[in-house]
């Protein structure tokens, strides 16, 4: 190390910059397009690989031929398999009302969706039954956010 490489931190320059594009447009893909149409119709999409139901649809099945799956409507029943309660936002600020986030799967399915469950943190538990509540039809775009939230179903 030569002598000049002992600068104090204050002697070092930091250069601000950013990395941005104007925006990205992500295409839904082959089966994503069919899934988008189901979502717009207020239905939860899934994929059948043989008898196995897989969420979300992914075009190809995890088999040795990477064969094509079939996009289908999933009627449920839906289960919040994992639940967590969020109390702070990105910046560590306390939320006014805690939010319940869950990993939601369907009976007998592999995989699932992440969604907000409209319920108070004390009332949720892993394995509870839920059902989707869609946005009004005119607001739907074919994205997963067309499901506004999930609500508990009384057993």
């Amino acid at each position: 190390m030569s002598w000049w490489k002992r600068a104090l931190p204050g002697d070092l320059v930091h250069f601000p910059g950013s990395q941005e594009v104007d925006h990205y447009l992500y295409t839904p893909g082959l089966h994503g397009l069919k899934a988008a149409e189901l979502l717009k119709a207020g239905k939860v999409p899934g994929m059948l690989c043989g008898d196995q139901l897989i969420l979300p649809p992914k075009t190809f099945c995890p088999d040795e031929r990477l064969s094509e799956g079939e996009v289908v409507e999933v009627e449920g029943p839906f289960i919040a398999a994992l639940v967590t309660v969020i109390r702070e936002d990105f910046y560590g600020r306390k939320l006014e009302e805690p939010q319940v986030l869950a990993f939601i799967t369907a009976q007998g399915a592999i995989g699932g969706y992440i969604g907000v469950v409209k319920a108070s943190p004390g009332d949720v538990y892993p394995g509870m039954r839920v059902r989707p509540v869609f946005r009004p039809e005119e607001e739907r775009t074919g994205a997963i956010t067309d499901i506004a939230f999930w609500e508990p179903v009384a057993d």
Partner: peptide
Amino acid sequence: RRLLETPRELAW
């Protein structure tokens, strides 16, 4: 330019 397929579908 602009294929409908997602990156993983193109690979597939």
